[in-house]
């Protein structure tokens, strides 16, 4: 069966449409479920996070709040100058994890108001302030650095 040029073009366009539809479906579904929102401690307190929802939080690690126990359990508090959030984590802390430094953690908010983190992030630069943290602190009037976050 020989197809005309027009029919062939229709087949190509149809194929493209199918692939595009698959891609669009995947992207839209993932955009709803797989994206993690970031909140500072104050924002987290004022909004009602549904239990079990994955979140990212960040701020400064409160001085004197870090408690390490033998089985690699870690508890610390994150502050944005206004609100303090307790974080529990089991695992290894990054090299740049220090009291008074910025931190970003990902996990879920427990019903008792503790944030149970399954990953704690820090970047490989001594001067680096996570962008989201800088923004959250700026909102609370603590951070005076440039808005861009990644200070040189």
């Amino acid at each position: 069966m020989a197809m005309t040029r027009k029919q062939r073009r229709l087949v190509t366009i149809g194929l493209a449409g199918i692939v595009l539809a698959i891609a669009a479906t995947l992207i839209l579904t993932a955009a709803k479920d797989k994206i993690v929102f970031f909140y500072g401690p104050t924002e987290l307190k004022t909004m009602a996070a549904s239990p079990g929802q994955r979140l990212r939080i960040g701020g400064l690690i409160e001085a004197g709040s870090l408690v390490k126990s033998d089985d690699l359990r870690v508890a610390f508090r994150v502050t944005d100058g206004t609100t303090v959030l307790a974080v529990a984590y089991r695992g290894l802390l990054p090299d740049l994890f220090r009291e008074g430094q910025g931190v970003v953690a990902e996990g879920v908010l427990e019903s008792d108001g503790t944030f149970r983190a399954d990953s704690v992030l820090a970047k490989h630069d001594e001067n680096y302030m996570p962008k989201e943290v800088a923004e959250a602190l700026r909102k609370q009037g603590v951070w005076k650095g440039q808005k861009n976050g990644a200070t040189p």
Binding site: I22, A23, L26, K34, V36, F37, F38, E132, A136
Partner: peptide
């Protein structure tokens, strides 16, 4: 103004199935 992170879960649910197909 909302800060989000798009990480491995997003790409694993989009780019990976497309490449597998």
């Amino acid at each position: 103004g909302a800060a989000i992170s798009v990480g491995a879960p997003f790409f694993n649910a989009t780019a990976v199935p497309l490449v597998v197909m």
